[in-house]
Simulated scan of single mutants.
Amino acid sequence: MTAASSVLPAALAPTAPALHAAPDLAAAGGAAAGLGGVAEWAVQVMETIGAPGAGLLVALENLFPPLPSEVILPLAGFTASQGNFSLAGAIFWTTLGAVLGATALYWIGAALGRRRLRVIVDRMPLVDLHDLDRTEAWFERHGRAAVFFGRMIPIFRSLISIPAGVERMSFLAFVLLSTAGSLIWNTVFVLAGFYLGENWHLAEQYAGVFSRIVLVTVAVLVAWWVVKRVLRNRRGLSDAARRERGEP
């Protein structure tokens, strides 16, 4: 029994450090460890390409909104905190990617042009050219502010670039305002991901609440506009029918 008891601890001794080392090995698996879906893919791109990969993802997010910046930007900060690239590099490349994506949409709007847009609007139900005229007049007065603040509002981040192109807003002014707005938005989320570390998803959760508020607000406004327009059209038809019958 004495010999067995002396051999048994010696045999078990090497396994204890191995058990304690398991978390370290998991942490060494890269920032993508434990993630899934879009988040895992985004981190893999950033780990493979570096900070330019973060910029590429943000540029794609402008063109394909299902890639949410509220996920990509905190992940860029988190990946920077793992030492894959610098914090300054993450902010620079994500802002450059945002501006490039916005510029692509600007030129799509410019290629569409006011004439083609008016033809499209004229064929749309519930919308008439008077609505477009009012929208163009509003954009002429508030377009610069819309581009700047629009870069910090989900949904509108991408959409605002198209009317800027349609209206042929000064390209230099568009780039400067897009850069300023994107720099503020990106810096906030990249810093959040950098300092939150593995809790980067907290930034995404709060941004998700903000996005849902924006979505609900837009949905309510659209529903209100549609109802108002349908009622207006029905009143117009009723008035026209009364006039045809000679009624006052």
Rank of each mutant, 00 (worst) to 15 (best):
T94H: 07
L126R: 14
R115I: 03
Y106W: 04
L56E: 05
P68T: 12
Q82F: 00
E61C: 14
Y106D: 11
H130E: 15
I72R: 02
E167F: 13
R123C: 03
I155P: 06
V58W: 07
L126S: 12
I49Y: 13
I72M: 08
T79Y: 07
F78I: 04
E47Y: 04
L73G: 02
S81D: 11
E167R: 04
G77Q: 08
R141K: 15
S161I: 10
L63Y: 13
R157P: 01
E167H: 00
L159E: 00
I120F: 14
M152A: 13
E47L: 01
A59Y: 01
A88E: 12
L67N: 04
N62D: 02
L159G: 02
L132N: 06
L105T: 05
L57M: 14
P74I: 06
F92M: 12
F64A: 14
R118P: 00
L60M: 15
F85R: 04
I162V: 15
M169D: 03
T95A: 10
G83L: 08
W93I: 08
R157Y: 14
P154V: 10
E61R: 04
E47S: 13
E167V: 11
I49T: 11
V58C: 10
A111F: 10
D131E: 08
G53R: 09
L132P: 03
L96D: 09
T48Y: 07
F148K: 06
